[in-house]
Structures are given as C-alpha cells and as structure tokens.
Amino acid sequence: MSARAHRSDAVANRDRIVAEARAVLGESPGAAGELRLHLIAKAAGVGQGTLYRHFPTREHLLAEVYRLELGELVDAVPALLAGHPPVEALARWLQRLVDYARVKRGVVAAIEATAWQDLHAGNHGRLDEALTTLLEAGAATGELREDVTAADVILLLGALSRVPEPGWDARAGTLVAVILDGLRRR
C-alpha cells in the first residue's frame, strides 16, 4: 500500500469515527460524558487502536466534534446570505445554532474545565465574526437594529444552556424566535 493510500485510509477512518460520535451526540446530547469509545469504533468499522491513535481520550474526540460543529456553523454564513434575505439568513443560522448548542451542551459537560476554556478561546472569535456578518447585513437593509452587537446576542443565547433537555425542542425554538423578534428594527 502506498503512503498516499495509507494517509487516505487514515483520514477516512478519522472521519468515520467523528461522524459516529456526532450521530450519537445528536441523538442524545447528554451522552457525551458516557460516550463509549469502543462502541464508536465498532460503529465506524475501525479497531479501538485506530480510534485511540486519532483520539487518545474521550475529550479529544468530543473536542473534534465541537470544532467540526462550530466550523460548519460559521462556514454556513456566506451561503445563507447569498441565498436568502438577511433576516431569513439570520433565522436559519440561529436554527443551526440551536442544533449546535444541543451538541455543545453535552460536550461542555464532558470536557474538563481547562480543556473547555482552551477549546472555547480558540474558536469563540469565529462565532462572533459570523454573527457580526449576519447582523451587519440585516442592519444594512434596515431590517435589523444597529445598536445590538454579536456579544449582546451571544449573551442572550446563553439562555439556551438553561433549557432542560426534556423541553429542549419546544423551548429552544421559542427563545430563538424571541431573540430574533428583539433584533428587528421597529
């Protein structure tokens, strides 16, 4: 087997591992602390050694899921703005954020505090930039208030961390709708 094919296999294995972990967390966000790595490896079709080569601990795997979720959330902004008016793009992005927040809750609960601070510090700026882009686009069309910053919205979105899991689907959507209504220019 060539070195290139070997690297390609390694990347494919890593991607399958992360995809399986994301699937498990998406089905049960509270499962992050009890994520069974051997079951993830089995579902991904790899051995435990392969999983541990890529992710030496559960925290490493959860951090990668978090980074991937955040990257997709941030990277969605240009396409949303290209395909929708700014307020609709923001609404769609906020819905994606709700899905992201659901995964993040489980990840935050499972990762040690110091590891979480490092992970958050290295990625939070990207989230601010994405939200700022959406808010500025809406303000430029006159649809959104100009006096609200990304930091303000993120503080408001912090309420999502207090939504209990049993009521998540109903309440998270309502909270985001209230925030979006508050962002509209009157």
Rank of each mutant, 00 (worst) to 15 (best):
Y66F: 14
W93P: 06
L90K: 12
R67A: 06
P29E: 12
L127V: 12
A137T: 07
A113P: 01
K104T: 00
R96E: 12
A10N: 06
G47C: 11
A32R: 09
P85K: 13
A151G: 09
D152A: 11
A5K: 05
I179M: 06
A79R: 15
H124L: 07
H54F: 05
L25T: 06
G122S: 06
A139C: 09
K42H: 13
G182A: 11
R58M: 10
K42M: 05
V77H: 11
N13P: 01
K42L: 06
E165W: 01
T141V: 12
L155A: 11
R53G: 06
Q117W: 01
P56R: 13
A43D: 06
G122P: 02
R7K: 01
R186N: 10
A31T: 11
T50N: 10
A137W: 02
K42G: 07
R105P: 00
V18K: 12
L94W: 09
V176A: 14
G30D: 12
L135P: 10
E112G: 07
A151T: 14
E146W: 05
T149A: 12
A3N: 01
R14N: 07
D169A: 13
A79S: 15
L160R: 08
R53K: 11
R186P: 15
G47S: 15
L97V: 05
G122T: 03
R184S: 06
L81N: 10
L70M: 09
I179S: 01
T114S: 09
A113M: 05
L73Q: 13
P29T: 09
D181L: 11
D75C: 08
Y100H: 15
I179H: 01
S161P: 01
G142D: 10
A31Q: 06
A159Q: 10
V153W: 01
L25N: 13
A41C: 12
H6R: 14
V176Y: 09
G125F: 00
D181V: 08
R184A: 08
L37F: 04
V176T: 15
H6T: 08
A110D: 02
E27S: 15
A137L: 10
W116N: 03
G182R: 09
A76G: 15
V24I: 14
A150F: 02
A130W: 04
R58T: 08
P85E: 15
P86H: 13
A21F: 10
L35R: 05
H6K: 06
D9F: 02
V148Y: 08
R185F: 11
G173Y: 00
G167W: 03
A150G: 02
A3P: 00
G71Y: 11
V103K: 05
V103C: 04
D181T: 13
V87R: 15
T174N: 02
L119G: 04
W168V: 05
A91S: 15
R145M: 10
N123F: 04
D169F: 03
R96G: 15
R96C: 06
L131A: 05
A109K: 02
D147T: 08
V74E: 14
G83P: 07
G125M: 00
D99L: 13
P86C: 14
A31G: 04
V148P: 08
E27I: 07
